[in-house]
């Protein structure tokens, strides 16, 4: 999974805030600044599981503050 895949999943799961630039380099931008709360991330995690077969434990998800961190979780999980 790459950052563009994640971008697509986020928008599918929780929409996009028109006032924020999801299109730029968002790897290290906190989800909070991008306009996504914990529910939005849970919805993203559910979509990731459905599409990629990767289950992200809730406690680890809660620690992922940025798209980069979430991506590392997903890909790390795939590697395991």
């Amino acid at each position: 999974m790459n950052i563009d895949d994640l971008r697509r999943v986020i928008v599918a799961a929780a929409g996009a805030d028109e006032t924020l630039r999801l299109a730029g380099d968002i790897t290290d931008t906190p989800f909070e600044e991008l306009g996504y709360d914990s529910l939005a991330l849970m919805e993203c995690a559910a979509l990731v599981e459905q599409e990629y077969g990767v289950s992200i434990p809730e406690d680890e998800l809660a620690e992922a503050r940025t798209p980069g961190a979430l991506l590392a979780l997903v890909n790390g999980s795939v590697a395991r």
Partner: peptide
Amino acid sequence: LPSRLLPQ
């Protein structure tokens, strides 16, 4: 409505 509100 903003698209953030549509899925919810």
